[in-house]
Amino acid sequence: MAVVAVPKSSEESNSKMKTSPSNTITLRISRSNPAEGQESAFSEFQIPVQKWTTVLEAILYVKQNFDHSVAVRYSCRQASCGSCGMKINGKPALACYTKISELNSNVVTVEPMNNFPIIRDLAVDFKQLISNHKKMKPFIIREDSEVTPESKEFIQTPQDLEKFLQFSYCIKCGLCNSACPTMATDTSFIGPQGLAQAYRYVADNRDKGKDERLKIVDDSHGIWRCHFAGSCSQVCPKGVDPAMAIQLLRGYLLGFRK
């Protein structure tokens, strides 16, 4: 059995110096509370960081050591829950999935995501995203079911699965909606997140709701507002590629696909 010993204090400081040179960066956090009429202003903090420190860890360091009132939403810390989207040095990204070291800058600025109402500081309101997601009927539509006693499973081949798998990886983080140029000006746009989810179910061969969903996205604030600028896919942290899903979905409406 391997024995793990606590390193002696001299060893510890030694190994720290050799393997993990710590660096100090300036973290600028946008602070605002629009409901209280408080305009945004930046708070600055000096944070010690390692090669592997994430932006979320730096923000939590601020909460633990300097100012606990910073509002930030997070949960999983591993790019799975979709809570910690924010603008990091000007671009939308997940705070838990962005290492400080990969930003190549000693100044890291975090701001709330654009195109979402600000609740406070870095926390934004997801009401519109969730309600647009629900409008896409994000579930399998068909008469029969695989859960009744006499029914069988709906068998799919690996090829059937590949047609929608990547789109099902969406964690509803909203980064795509905050990068989208249409979302920047159109307050009623469904957005890349919702449109990509409409395609996720249309592409699933267990689903029979294609016509229903096509009718929903065929709207003046629907799929036609997408200009294929690709910014959604540029920022998506899960490889969903909403721009691809939207163009494939539009292929049905334009008659390129059956």
Binding site: E162, L165, F228, P237, D241, R250
Partner: peptide, 26 residues
């Protein structure tokens, strides 16, 4: 290019996403 793309032509094929998750449509 944009018109063909809008019809789903040349925007890549869906598949298993793998790190670092480069988007096939770009």
């Amino acid at each position: 290019r944009v018109m063909l793309g809008h019809g789903g032509i040349g925007v890549g094929k869906p598949g298993q996403p793998e790190y670092p998750y480069k988007a096939a449509s770009l």
